[in-house]
Design a protein around this nucleic acid. Structure first.
Lengths: 353, 353
DNA sequence: CTGATAACTGATACCGGTGTCCGGTCCGCA
DNA sequence: TGCGGACCGGACACCGGTATCAGTTATCAG
């Protein structure tokens, strides 16, 4: 295999060129680059001037070889929600913008039995400084252990703390879901349906906990016939909608564990001529683009995913990010927020508050 | 700055370990890694066995340093549509799965006046084998020139050929839009509205061309009052919908230059009690998740973005991908396809065909 | 005005591969 | 038998940085 792309006319200046121009050794230049102490202001200035003059950019490959670590952050994900992944990416990139780091994206296959091997090979080859694990694969303890073994720093992103605070950024989904459901109850809703997330997902469990918590506080329960299974996909929302809304005694409100499924329920309501929100209130979760693109616009919970990307960067590579990265542990739980739009109203027969 | 993460107990095997175990020189191991010809099956097998046995993974940093090129593909994008970006990523990753390459993602800011400098610095630092430019920044000729100057291979993704076939993958959007509009006309629509994309976008221009082409074929024209501006965002769809549907003589069908705007128009229709598709047909473009999540599901044009990712990889790094990458120029235009869902019907007063 | 100590700096090995330039062996074929 | 080409080893320079450690220069107490 040959890499025969040709460079431009004059080749890139190296550390030697800088050293020669500044009249110092290359080691001294290296010291300047790495912000070593023990440097006279005079020599530092001379070197910096030479760097400026030549437009010198340290070669990351050479540094990576010498440091035995690549200046990269790996983002491992297997998330069906593109917006989530991209927003998280954006947060990370914002955080590392002024550092020497770059972002490597690696989708993986959660279902594959070669998952561990794939990730191991990837990490051994790329040797990133650290890895970020997005849900749902962040819930895989073996992956975290693998990072540990390989000496790769890692951060897990979750709906609730999954690990000690050094390794986890999460949000308070449970509380906010409870808050949303309390809102429904305050409006007068008593029969409230629930569309679950996929089994085994921490996020789904958290949302369900919050839901049941709010119900319990008001002395309500979730009857089995209003508790529909789901998998975070639109089609599951359709099925849940069919099941819940075909009943003689349908719920007056439905909480869906994500927006896609809420969109599915809404479609069924439209098809049956059920007016939303007048006859049926719907709440989703994620604040995905779908939430605003459907009609009526969906009340939902915004997951602070971009901010979590920033925070994850700060706890993963504080030493690369400048001084602003000192944080308390508490800061690793970021607040989700309830977003009220047009899909919620009092149940039929009750006036607007 | 210190990278003091500690490796596992036994350090990674190097090419010297492999050479020692296989009883050959390190140069021969290098020959095996780089698939040199002039190798006996016997020695090749011996080396491969040793590699297998030790679990040797060539250090990409060292290779990158020696090759003076990083084994990376950079994906430069400034695309508001997350699904598009992620699907493209997926295509690229599928294509390079079995190669030594990895994918570096780099969002850029189209509007910034430092765009060129940012990208230059990025490319000089990371020295990827090649870069992929997603629309709309793929339409920036200066960026392509920059890649050329820096000796970085590049591919531009577009709605229509932007460059010679060595550097461009595109789709036949114009034709498919025309096909969609011909379908509307065949159903009996005569007053057809159009919601434009943002000015200066090649994709927007192509879609408009296709639209006008189909109208012209049928002897129809687009009256100015049915030609609404837009910017690919939901809110623009809302505004366009307000403008077009408030008229005394509203169109019986509206073609929207993307799905987000179609969702906006649809919301306005819902709000005004206009039945879709019975009283108004709507067509979008992109086949984004939104298209299936709204009600009724949107007829739209699917952009073969994932396949374009595969194809882009094949023309960017054929030498890394094995023999399957030999392709005709014609293959660089991939077919978009019309997807018919529930948002299109004959205009009021015409029976179903 | 010494000598000791701390602050700075540079020569050289090293990270883990690849390219070059031989030199030598083995093999098929005239 | 001789010969040319395929195959492989060995020594070494090199990619562009960093680490080590000894050497040189300030600083300052005595």
């Amino acid at each position: 295999m040959a890499a025969q792309t040709r460079g431009p006319g004059g080749r890139q200046p190296t550390i030697n060129d800088v050293a020669a121009l500044a009249g110092v050794s290359k080691k001294t230049v290296s010291r300047v680059i790495n912000r070593s102490q023990f440097l006279t202001d005079k020599t530092r200035a001379a070197v910096e001037k030479a760097i400026e003059q030549l437009g010198f950019v340290p070669n990351p490959q050479a540094r990576a070889l010498a440091f035995r670590r690549n200046f990269l952050i790996a983002l491992l994900h297997d998330n069906p929600n593109a917006q989530t992944v991209l927003n998280f990416q954006r947060g990370v990139l914002d955080a590392i913008k002024d550092s020497d780091l770059a972002l490597l994206v690696r989708p993986v296959d959660r279902g594959s039995d070669k998952l561990l091997d794939d990730v191991r090979t990837f990490l051994e080859k790329q040797r990133p400084i650290g890895a970020m694990l997005l849900p749902p694969i962040s819930e895989n303890d073996e992956l975290a252990g693998l990072c540990e073994d390989l000496g790769v720093r890692y951060v897990r992103i979750g709906s609730a703390p999954l690990d000690d605070a050094r390794h986890c950024v999460s949000s308070n989904d449970r509380e906010v879901v409870a808050e949303a459901v309390r809102g429904l109850i305050a409006l007068g809703h008593r029969r409230i349906g629930f569309v679950r997330g996929p089994v085994g997902f921490r996020s789904a469990a958290e949302r369900e906990k919050g839901f049941l918590e709010a119900l319990a506080e008001a002395g309500l329960t979730l009857p089995g016939e209003l508790n529909a299974p789901g998998n975070y996909r639109y089609t599951a929302g359709i099925e849940a909608g069919e099941a819940l809304l075909a009943r003689a005694d349908p719920p007056t409100a439905i909480f869906c564990s994500n927006d896609e499924m809420a969109a599915g329920v809404l479609s069924v309501a439209h098809g049956k001529g059920i007016k939303v929100p007048a006859e049926l209130s719907i709440i989703g979760f994620d604040d995905s683009p779908t939430a605003t693109h459907i009609w009526p616009a969906l009340s939902t919970v915004r997951w602070p995913i971009r901010e979590m990307g920033v925070r994850a960067s700060q706890i993963l590579v504080p030493d690369f990010l400048g001084p602003a990265a000192k944080l308390d542990e508490d800061d690793n739980v970021l607040p989700s927020t309830l977003i009220e739009r047009q899909s919620v109203a009092p149940p039929p027969g009750r006036s607007k508050p």
